[in-house]
Computed example of a mutant assay.
Amino acid sequence: MKYMSRKPIPTKVHGMLDYASGALFIASPWLFKFADNNAARRVAVGTGVAVLGLSALTNYEAGLSRQIPMRTHLNVDTINGVLVAASPWLFGFAKRKYWPHLAFGLLEVGAGLLTRRKPADV
């Protein structure tokens, strides 16, 4: 029987979430009405672009080029999530609107910590 990680999120599902969350990060300044704040918008759009780029280069089912190990991808997700969650306070826009960055950051941390480290097809 194949070894099954105790982590609940398969890498295939993580890949689908990556592309959806990357697009949502990019659209979030306009969806959640904070596009007029440069710092908040740049963090969201930059994070979205980074998530999409990392996903395209990761060695998992959703990867296009498959150069970056899954373990590295998940470590980057976790660190990035902490930074995104803290960004309203780090960049001074918490009084304007903090909840989208905090929520997305915490979800990113969760995905990084709860996804299996080895893709099924590797």
Rank of each mutant, 00 (worst) to 15 (best):
Y3L: 12
Y3H: 12
Y3A: 14
S5P: 00
S5E: 11
P8M: 00
P8C: 11
P10Q: 06
P10M: 06
K12C: 01
V13S: 11
G15Q: 01
M16W: 13
L17H: 05
D18K: 01
D18Y: 00
Y19R: 15
A20W: 03
S21D: 03
L24D: 00
F25Q: 07
F25N: 11
A27G: 07
A27D: 03
S28T: 06
P29D: 09
F32T: 03
F34E: 02
A35C: 08
D36V: 06
D36C: 03
D36L: 05
A40W: 06
R41Q: 08
R42T: 12
V43Y: 06
V43D: 06
V45W: 01
V45I: 15
V45P: 07
G46E: 03
G48W: 00
G48S: 06
A50P: 02
A50T: 06
G53A: 13
G53P: 00
S55T: 14
S55D: 12
A56T: 01
L57N: 09
T58D: 04
N59T: 05
Y60S: 14
E61G: 14
A62M: 11
L64M: 06
S65G: 10
R66S: 05
R66M: 10
R66N: 09
I68V: 15
P69R: 08
P69I: 07
M70L: 15
R71H: 10
L74M: 13
L74Y: 04
V76Q: 00
T78S: 15
I79Y: 07
G81W: 08
G81D: 05
V84R: 06
A86E: 02
A86I: 05
S87I: 01
P88Q: 11
W89P: 03
L90F: 12
L90D: 10
F93T: 04
A94N: 11
K95N: 14
K95C: 02
K95T: 12
R96K: 15
K97A: 12
Y98D: 02
Y98P: 01
W99L: 14
P100Y: 08
P100D: 08
L102W: 08
F104E: 01
F104R: 03
V109K: 12
G110W: 04
G112Y: 09
L113W: 09
L113A: 13
L114G: 12
T115V: 10
T115I: 11
T115E: 08
T115L: 10
R116G: 01
R117C: 09
R117E: 11
R117W: 04
K118A: 11
P119T: 03
P119S: 14
A120D: 05
A120F: 09
D121E: 15
V122D: 13
